[in-house]
Design a protein around this nucleic acid. Structure first.
Length: 459
RNA sequence: GGUGCGGUGGCGGAGAGGCUACGCACCGGCCUGCAAAGCCGAGUACACCGGUUCGAAUCCGGUCCGCACCUCCA
């Protein structure tokens, strides 16, 4: 089965063909760690996590690199305000980021490089750019000369002269061209800095991703991920830098083959912003909703589309998962964990929707179809569908974490259930309810179904 | 001004010329000791105006509205 992905550079949905079938390589721009991650950060993480899971269905090895930016002016500022070192600050928020993402079922990337561990690589990178005359010095800064790269604007489809530069930030007069960006800047007084051929300083914003993707993945690699807002200037600048390392202007494809951008998240149709005070932190949302509810919400729309969420929509996903859990409890036990699926048409159908540009809404529809089919089919077919559903839920990452485990107290549980069944037969409902309570205290929930009483652990 | 993405039923959200998307909510019925789930049925859609077509939410032209980006925001 073929995988298709939308690609921002070519503006097309393209068949995914890896450079090396034995090792698919992906890079995603990770967070700048100076604050708690919000729901928008989470979308990128969840969506790329799913992308990796899907690719792993087809390819044995997927190397997924997602960086941590731990040097930046905002970090310096925040550290100063909180009276801590930048290391203390970034370590703290790096950890928090990983914890919060874990709550959303996001696996750690294959490797999570930190920018400050790659300063030497960045310096080497910049040296080459200077030697190639793609960078120049001005007021102590080393800047990339965007005029030197003829494909500048190819990713974001911008004709640079038509852009209104300085709409948000004042024009800098040390730049030859308004689009030029800082590769290296000098550090003063208490600012953190590293020795370089251009004196004590620190890297600009875009260079870290170029240096780390080159070092950790090699060029070119397969897929570059990030939020749409990074398309310009961040990704455009990454391309310019990374394609200026050799002789002349290399085409953007010599950096990476597919650009995978996820849409923005809004709350009640309004962009989350500090000034409006409507930033939804993952941490706070987790107080009210399970990680799975949040994950489902983030996967409910196609990744490219804008995603609006609200208290109301979260409630809807919570309700949906509640019903799904009932289904899960009644149908699955530990044995499903071990079973391997072979030639399962249902699972193929499900997977084909994800292979088609990670179409999660379609995948959810197919999942729902399968669930309703389970109730209305033969026993053999039922087993096949259930296997598919089990695996489908695992890929989406919305499976229930606790399955029935064959534990020591199973005999006791079975005994109590039997007793309760007898009590019900004899219409001794008081006793039946007492036994239910007793089981509840053992963290066992029971449900009476047409196939008899089902039980499952709640912890 | 430029670039990109959108406007689908009460809500979320697919689809992309003819066939019920799906989910949540709501209403009616069935089932049910309780709890939960399930089943059957009803309803409410494709921003607007033209055009193409036997047929358009889907194609074409125009209009309106929203959002994002245009140097440090995922």
């Amino acid at each position: 089965m073929k995988i298709y992905l939308s690609d921002t550079l070519s503006k097309k949905k393209k068949e995914f063909i890896p450079i090396d079938h034995k090792n698919v390589r992906i890079y995603a721009c990770g967070p700048t760690v100076y604050n708690f991650p919000h729901f928008g950060n989470a979308r990128m993480a969840v969506v790329t996590d799913l992308l990796v899971r899907v690719l792993k269905q087809k390819y044995k090895k997927v190397t997924f690199i997602s960086n941590i930016t731990d040097i930046d002016d905002k970090i310096i500022e925040a550290a100063k305000e909180q009276n801590v070192t930048i290391g203390e600050l970034t370590n703290k928020y790096h950890l928090i980021y990983n914890q919060d993402m874990e709550s959303l079922g996001v696996s750690l990337p294959t490797f999570q490089p930190k920018a400050t561990d790659y300063i030497a690589d960045m310096i080497d990178f910049i040296k080459i750019l200077v030697d190639n005359k793609c960078a120049y010095e001005s007021d102590g800064n080393i800047l990339f000369d965007t005029d030197s790269y003829k494909y500048y604007g190819a990713l974001s489809k911008r004709v640079m002269n038509d852009q209104k530069t300085g709409t948000r930030v004042k024009k800098a007069n040390y730049k030859r061209n308004d689009n030029d960006f800082i590769l290296w800047k000098p550090s003063f007084k208490n600012e953190p800095g590293w020795d370089s051929p251009w004196g004590l300083g620190r890297p600009g914003w875009h260079i870290e991703c170029s240096a780390m993707s080159k070092k950790c993945l090699g060029l070119p690699f397969d897929i570059h991920c990030g939020g749409v807002d990074l398309t310009f200037p961040h990704h455009e600048n990454e391309i310019a830098q990374s394609c200026s390392l050799g002789n002349g202007n290399l085409k953007p494809e010599s950096f990476c083959n597919y650009w995978f951008h996820n849409g923005f998240v809004t709350f009640d149709n309004i962009k989350m912003s500090k000034s409006l005070g409507n930033i939804k932190l993952v941490r706070d949302l987790l107080k009210k909703y399970e990680g799975r509810v949040l994950r489902l919400c983030l996967l409910s729309a196609h990744y490219k589309q804008p995603l609006d969420f609200s208290e109301n929509s979260l409630k809807q996903f919570k309700n949906y998962l509640h019903k799904l859990d009932y289904f899960y409890n009644v149908n699955f036990s530990e044995e499903y964990e071990r079973e391997k699926i072979v030639n399962n048409n249902y699972f193929e159908e499900f997977l084909s929707s994800l292979f088609d540009d990670i179409n999660t809404p379609k995948a959810l529809r197919i999942l729902n179809d399968h669930i309703s089919k389970v109730r209305n089919t033969t026993l053999t077919e039922k087993k096949i569908i259930l296997q598919s559903i089990f695996k489908s839920l695992k890929i989406l990452g919305i499976e229930k974490s606790s399955l029935n485990k064959l534990e020591n107290d199973k005999g006791e549980i079975m005994k109590l259930i039997k007793e309760r069944e007898n009590a019900r037969k004899n219409k001794n409902f008081n006793l039946a309810d007492e036994l239910r309570d007793k089981l509840k205290k053992m963290h066992i929930e029971i449900e009476d179904t047409p196939d008899g009483t089902k039980w499952f652990k709640t912890k």
